[in-house]
Structures are given as C-alpha cells and as structure tokens.
Amino acid sequence: MANIVIDNIRKSFGAFEALKGVSLTINDGEFVSLLGPSGCGKTTLLRIIAGLETATSGDISIGGRSVIGLPPKDRGLAMVFQNYAVFPHMTVYENVAFGLRMQKADDARVRKQVEKAAGLLHIEPYLERYPNKLSGGQRQRVAVARALAVEPAVLLMDEPLSNLDALLRLEMRTELKTVLQSAGTTTIYVTHDQTEAMGLSDRIAVVHDGRIEQVGTPVEIYNHPATRFVGGFIGNPPMNFITLPVRDGQVAIGQERFSVPASGGDIVLGLRGETVERAPAGQGLEMQVRVAEPMGSHLLLTGSILSQPARVILPATETVMNGETIGLTVDAKRVTWLSPENGVSYPAAA
C-alpha cells in the first residue's frame, strides 16, 4: 500500500507540451481517475508514473520514495493495458504467474497467488487455455488478475474497459469496483468515459490540455465544476451555460432576483439540466423548446434559453410539445456561477 505524490510534472515531445506542470496527491488505498478527452495528456501522465516514459521535469514519489529514474519494476506497481497485452504464447496460468516468475517466487507461492487472483476474477476454468481462445472480457480479466497476482502497492489502469462492448463494460465496471475495493490497492485509472470515472472513483482528476482542471469527488465535480470545461465535459447532457447581465450584484431570472458574486457586466449561469422544475407559463426562466424527446425515464428538452442553446430534463410525467415555450424554476443552491472572461467558476455560495 502506498500513497502517490505527483509534483509539477512536465513533459514535452519536441515543441509539443503534453503535460504543463501537473501536481496531484493520491492517498493510500484511494481510487483516482484521470478523466479527460483523448490527447489531453492523461495516458502520458500514467506512463510517466509507470516509468515507461520519462518526465521532462518534476517529481513523483510512491510510498514516500522518489521513483524518478527508477525502472518500472522497482516502483512496486502493476499495470493493465488498454488492449490487455495478455501474452498470446503463454497459458492464462502463466500469464497470471508472469510477474511472480519474474520475482523468482517459488512454485508454491506462484500457485497460491495465481489461484487467489483467478478466483477474484472468475477465470479458474480458463487457466490452462491460451488467450487466443478467450473473449475480450475474459482477456481483460486475465490482465487484471495478472496485475493483482503480484499484490502491487499501486495499480495503474489505462482505459481498461474501452475495448469491451457496452453491456460487458457495465458488468466489468461493477466487478472491478468490487474486486479493487477488497484488494485495497491504490489505483490510478485513466479513462475518457465519464460514467466509468463517476462510478468507480473515490476522486476524479479532470485533465484538459496538459493540466489538471479540477480534483474532487464525483459529486463535487458534477455539482460544482471548477471550470466551464469541466461542466461541459461531465454530465449527460452537459451543463448549460447561459450568459446573463448583472445589475447591482444581482441577476434577474423571470420575476426572481439572484445574488451573484459579481457587481456588474455579465456572468455565466452554469445550470445542470435536471436541476430545474417546470414553472407556470410566463414565470421563471423562459425556454423555447425545439425538440422534446420522451426517454421513458425522463423527458429531454432541447432548445434555447435567452437565445443560447440549452438542454434540460423534466420528469417523464410532464408533456411538452415541440416549439412550445415553457417556464423553468431555478434552484439557487444548485447552480454554478462562472466568469465569462476565463470560464472559471466562483466558489460555491456558503
């Protein structure tokens, strides 16, 4: 078990700066996701932690010991790759045993550890088979079992579920959570899939353009995004951003007045689509509904608020026609106010 301290890591590939000074502390036993769109630098950061890539500058310590310059094997970690990287010329048993064999563990210990890991991942029936004969989901289990068999202090996972089909992904996600919780391993999980990150993580670090935009629990990040990027990237539909004029430290929404952390000019209202309620016609925030989509569990409305694109969610029991104009009540406690200049949010009102 080990904590990880990432201190101001930079990485350049020629003129391209992939990581622009990333710092992050991960507690012992914690599950942290690096979440971001492709090309944001999250995989590069993971590879630097693993020792497969060298940082241009900065420091990383695992369990209080700086690992910069150490080869991967001396960092006390294991890794699960996006395309599994399960060795095709070895049986599942030998794959799971690989790390232990490299540590020169005796046969008894190898067998014990392999059986334990195989049991956790439910791959006992395939131990004597070759990976070629396994499905994607089964191979992924082998890759996870191989990583857990060495009882690593730190487990690194690089988009481990992205090659699986949607149904299997959901199943493996639940299972991963169970397995990793019982193992208690410090885990860093790279993904571009926000639902995976939300569902699995203790905390999420949202990575954008070589920087960490925000670190927090899934709920914190969802409810109070630190930047416009985070609000737009997380949540489906993404957060709505509506620019409103400020007068005397207040904005007017329908008949209501909201105190905002700005005195004049404009301010951006960050509004989660499902935090609104339908108001009687002519009251609240006015929305022109272009398309109403009944999704069964809810009603998804796409249209505009004050001529700015917006998507909101109402209970399935509401009926709204395409082209209808409706009123929406906004809950002051559940909105985020952002600066229109730099897209950074103001601290949540106490």
Binding site: K73, A78, M102
Partner: peptide, 18 residues
C-alpha cells in the same frame, strides 16, 4: 509485435534479455 507486450513484461519486472 505490439509494443504493449514488451511494456507489460517490463512493468512486471522482466529484464531486457528476458
């Protein structure tokens, strides 16, 4: 040979010769 195989082996402690 995909480079992930070699990287996985490296992570799990295999020397260059191994």
């Amino acid at each position: 040979v995909p480079k992930e195989f070699k990287e996985a082996a490296e992570i799990f402690g295999a020397s260059p010769w191994t």
